[in-house]
């Protein structure tokens, strides 16, 4: 079973001391995708803004196998439930053999964490078209889950 890899605060460690902009806090982890496949995700956090890079082993017709997708998002907090949600909007070019045919694919990332749990889990949901972030998905949301420690 694939397991986690954390490179917490790597960006901060390597940051130039006299840079004005604060260096992003980073997390890298590996997710299981529909149990059998996997994805590597790197998240850069600046406050609650996220920059996300996701590399997926298999594209399931909504991305190329092995594709690396990039996008931005937010860290959403639900304090009344002690839940956090990592979100991002990722874009992929068309996969002609997939359900979207010649259309590009918009892939919404949503990963939740309960309290201080090491584990996060959630979804990568594909929608047909450019910058389409709701509607009936092109296929079932891909199921993501892993076990990761929180940053120090």
């Amino acid at each position: 079973m694939r397991r986690w890899l954390l490179l917490a605060s790597l960006g901060a460690v390597l940051a130039c001391e006299d840079s004005e902009a604060p260096s992003p806090e980073t997390e890298s982890f590996e997710l299981d995708v529909d149990i059998r496949e996997n994805a590597q995700v790197r998240v850069e956090k600046r406050g609650e803004s996220l920059e996300v890079r996701l590399t997926i082993s298999r594209g399931f017709g909504v991305a190329e196998d092995g594709a690396t997708l990039r996008g931005s998002g937010r860290l959403e907090r639900f304090p009344e439930a002690d839940v956090t949600l990592y979100t991002a909007k990722l874009s992929a070019p068309a996969v002609s053999a997939g359900p979207c045919g010649s259309e590009p694919v918009s892939l919404a990332l949503a990963l939740h964490r309960r309290g201080t749990a090491k584990r996060v889990s959630g979804s990568l949901t594909p929608y047909c078209g450019k910058d389409v972030w709701s509607g009936v998905p092109a296929r079932n949301p891909l199921r993501l889950s892993t076990t990761i420690p929180k940053p120090e």
């Binding site: 949600l85 979100t87 949503a110 972030w133 079932n140």
Partner: peptide, 24 residues
């Protein structure tokens, strides 16, 4: 089995993302 539990989680997290986006 695990895949079915994660089916529930996956759909609910995406619903949650959309809802929060509307609130924003």
């Amino acid at each position: 089995f695990r895949g079915e539990a994660e089916y529930g989680i996956a759909h609910c997290t995406e619903a949650l993302r959309i809802a929060r986006g509307v609130i924003r």
